[in-house]
């Protein structure tokens, strides 16, 4: 008889492993596209840079890049804490501080992309 044995845990390991790779590939593609755009233009100056960030599709792509970066950074940071910070208190504190920092980064990104003084103005 075949037994399906549920071991333990929330089974987020594989999802996280995959998400780490997918976000890495998304970020690499964004960087390569940005590099290609800059080379194609023969360098960057203010007016081109400004026009680029005024483009709606580029804003969304940049937001996706940052969202991928935040998630990727969270997975990496958590992995480091799991390996080197064993006591629950300090680990939880580090995790909470990291999450707060990363969400703040994402908020800053939104402000730059769609805020009054940012690219939208």
């Amino acid at each position: 008889m075949v037994m399906r044995r549920q071991t333990v845990g929330a089974h987020y390991g594989l999802t996280d492993w995959l998400a780490q790779r997918v976000t890495a590939i998304v970020m690499t593609l964004y960087v390569l596209v940005l590099l290609a755009v800059a080379l194609w233009n023969g360098g960057l100056d203010y007016s081109f840079w400004r026009a680029l960030f005024g483009n709606g599709a580029f804003k969304v792509a940049t937001f996706l890049f940052m969202a991928a970066l935040i998630y990727h950074a969270w997975l990496g940071a958590r992995e480091i804490y799991m390996d080197y910070v064993k006591p629950v208190g300090p680990r939880l504190t580090l995790q909470v501080v990291t999450i707060a920092l990363l969400i703040a980064y994402l908020g800053w990104t939104i402000q730059i992309l769609w805020g009054h003084t940012g690219a939208a103005a």
Binding site: F53, A73, G76, A77, I80, Y105, I112, G118, A119
Partner: peptide
Amino acid sequence: GAILLLIGIPVLLWGVERSLA
């Protein structure tokens, strides 16, 4: 990875913000 998280991202965001202001 830790360096990029703690220093790279804020420097990047600060630079992009200033460059577009």
